[in-house]
Amino acid sequence: MEKGEPIIRLEHVDAGYPGAVILHDVSFAVARGEIFILLGGSGCGKSTVMKHMTGLNPILAGRLTVAGREWSVQTRAELCRQIGVMYQSGALFGSMTCLENVRLPLDEFSDLSKAARRARALELLRDVELEDAADKMPSEISGGMRKRVAIARAMALDPSVVFLDEPSAGLDPITSAALDDLILRLRAEKGMTFVVVTHELPSVFKIGDRAAMFDRARHGLVALGAPQALRDTSEDPFVRKFFSRGEYHGQ
């Protein structure tokens, strides 16, 4: 698949849970190699969309394809080789060291020898500048470091797309900016596609190639495009208010 081709496509998707549609008729595509932002206020459904895209929850209506194939016909094993996910808290396993956390997907799914798996996990930790923390437990490292270990784990099986759920949440501005730099570097070095759920505007403008913006009040996608373009040219009152950090209640 060439750079720029859609790797994930949503067509007229209803997002939510059985009996509770949160977003109606959502359509967009994520191109290979881009950093795509799912943007919106708290509770607007951006994490729900991410859960659909990562295969955690089935979509309520519409069509969702990953690498050209319908999401619903792919097995979990197929999906997990195509996507990696970093959750908001990092979601590292507390009973394992950082190295073991990163090595886990390799242990389960790769045919590499034990030594090769360890070497690969160390290489991934080196990519996120945490080789020194390999033998530490998640409780012994900071929140920002946990997120970087989680990114390393998400990349373990060389997925096509890495999802990042609120990477800046709970981090100070310096750590958050360092994480943004890491995402940009990984994209530049490895050509990875990132889908980032966030509402942190500095991050959005720094790393985002395109953004899909959701509005809870209108239950849908209200803007799609480059973040700077949305900020400068959108005439949608919600989009303008959001980028000017104003209050908006869907009135």
Binding site: L79, C80, G84, A91, F93, L104, E108
Partner: peptide
């Protein structure tokens, strides 16, 4: 606690 910390989701998306 693992569920609240999204570790179960992490396992599921890793295919475990």
């Amino acid at each position: 606690t693992m569920k609240v910390d999204e570790e179960l989701d992490a396992l599921t998306t890793m295919g475990l």
